[in-house]
Amino acid sequence: MEAGYNFAYLDEATKRMIRRAILKAVAIPGHQIPFGAREMPLPYGWGTGGIQVTASIIGPADTLKVIDQGADDTTNAISIRRFFARVADVATTERTEDASIIQTRHRIPEAPLREDQILVYQVPMPEPLFRLEPRIAETKRMHALADYGLMHTKLYEDIARLGRIGTAYNYPVMVNERYLMSPSPIPAFDNPKMDRMPALQLFGAGREKRIYAVPPYTPVRSLDFEDHPFRAIRAPHACTLCNSTASYLDEVVTDDQGGRVYVCSDTDFCRTEQERAA
């Protein structure tokens, strides 16, 4: 373990402050809790919120998995996994089923998560209304009043103009029918997985200094309209490697002649599927 730094890098006073914020976040599902985010040795915007949440909950008994875009071997996921191996000396894994804590950027694993797992999201912009109202003081008031007319209007205008809702990722959700929440920039495809998930979901936004949470089994509803129900979009293909027609796919450009293949974004899921078929 790295000498000169505390277990999991953060000092104990910082962990306590973050732990208190996490508990209040769990008690008020979907509500953003301001917290005194620290400067981390990784840049803001690169997962410092998720890292601070993970550092505050992780212990020697945990096994950590880190994914970025669904993959364990993307450079930023590797960098974060290395950070925790270095400062907390915890076991790491690439297997979803073996992990007790999964820190993620932009995806929810395909395999259903269990009660004994915690999913930690890295969040760039925690405020779901920020494109419609950039002023935090104003959006705080809207959340207090559960005044989300602005978002409904925006989605409705999309439908009027485009014939469908124009949001394909970071698709806003209502948590327990009270707070409008950003699911972080996961594809809308993943939104249904948040609904009544057995695992605890924690969200950390370091630069914006907010923590929020969705407790297990909490209703999470993607905003929609009766005549335009929410649709989870994926590329209409099978994975080239494992043949899955259910998983979320990355489009890989293979040449400059229009050649494309589609592969699972969740690398662990894809490997598991291939092993099962073999």
Binding site: G166, A168, F189, I233, A235, D250, E251
Partner: peptide
């Protein structure tokens, strides 16, 4: 500059 291809894929399909 970090990968955003998951989101970009959603946008592509959309």
């Amino acid at each position: 500059k970090l990968p955003h291809y998951v989101d970009f894929q959603s946008e592509l399909e959309n």
